[in-house]
């Protein structure tokens, strides 16, 4: 063994210094062009005619209505999806049944189906010219071109986030703790509240934040189902697009700035979570 020359102490997984530097520069360059430049442009364009102008444009009823609608849709869709996501993850991880793999694939469907197609499906299912949709319109509860349709569309596009965060965590944790609680006399509901929920809380919060970011930013599906009625069914992304098409660039970019800020807050919360609870989230490295 002693005749093997000791040429280098560099670990085998480390590249040559020059190559490493080049790689870092390229990555930073791509980040700058694709991420930072657009973000800076949004705020630059919004503030080009001064902060007063930007704020005035946000006070416009159309912009205010869009902000309110987007927050309302997120406030409805995200909690609903948290509940659906927990139920789906629970069902998938705590029971054995045929077709489980298929169900897991189905949960991912919204990732692969274009949101526009999803929106069209909602229109075709609940539109005024379908039997069910027509009946609902007659009763005074239209779904398409109204709030329920927007919430449905948002539910569809955000469905995978919570379930996908929870499934690996719950699989990793298994059923033993829940079974132990049952043998100690706890009811099913008590087991859920005192054992299951505390064990998944960080993954759940993480999934909720991701779902929230997606719900606020969704364009395609909402564009189809909302009918883009100004001041009524136009969410922030829809309103931004309409303003931009009408050359109201300060208004469009100011609203876009608010949307970007909301996303940045979500991202900051998510990062804070990752730092504080790295262990609990270790089961999912996908994001």
């Amino acid at each position: 063994m002693s005749d093997i020359p000791l040429r280098s102490y560099r670990p085998v997984t480390t590249e040559a210094p020059l190559f490493r530097t080049a790689l870092i520069v390229v990555v930073l360059g791509i980040l700058a062009v694709l991420l930072f430049a657009p973000l800076i442009t949004v705020f630059y364009e919004a503030l080009r005619k001064g902060a007063l102008e930007a704020l005035t444009s946000l006070a416009n009823p159309e912009a205010l209505s869009a902000i309110k609608l987007t927050l309302l849709v997120a406030a409805l869709a995200v909690p609903l999806n948290a509940v659906f996501g927990i139920a789906a993850a629970w069902f998938i991880t705590k029971y054995d049944f045929r077709g489980k793999a298929f169900l897991i694939t189905l949960i991912d469907l919204p990732f692969s189906v274009s949101p526009v197609v999803a929106g069209l499906c909602i229109v075709l299912t609940f539109g005024a010219n379908t039997a069910f949709g027509g009946w609902l319109v007659g009763m005074g509860y239209p779904i398409v071109f109204a709030l329920p349709g927007i919430v449905l569309a948002s539910l569809f596009v955000t469905f995978p986030f919570v379930a996908r965060e929870l499934i690996p965590v719950m699989i990793e944790q298994g059923r033993a703790e829940e079974e132990a609680a049952l043998t100690l006399g706890a009811s099913g509901w008590r087991v859920f509240l005192t054992v299951t929920l505390p064990n998944i809380r960080w993954a759940l919060l993480y999934g909720v934040l991701l779902a929230n970011a997606r719900a606020m930013g969704e364009f395609g599906a909402v564009a189809v189902v909302s009918g883009k009625i100004r001041g009524v069914t136009a969410t922030m992304p829809i309103t931004i697009e309409m303003m931009y098409n009408e050359y109201l660039s300060v208004a469009a970019f100011s609203l876009a700035g608010v949307l970007a800020l909301l996303a940045l807050v979500t991202l900051a919360l998510k990062t804070a979570l990752e730092i504080a609870h790295a262990d609990a989230l270790a089961a999912n490295h996908r994001h």
Partner: peptide, 19 residues
Amino acid sequence: TVQDRRAGFVFQSYALFRH
């Protein structure tokens, strides 16, 4: 039911409540 059995059960990996 499992609750009504009142069996003290010690699991293979102990299944202590980690939190």
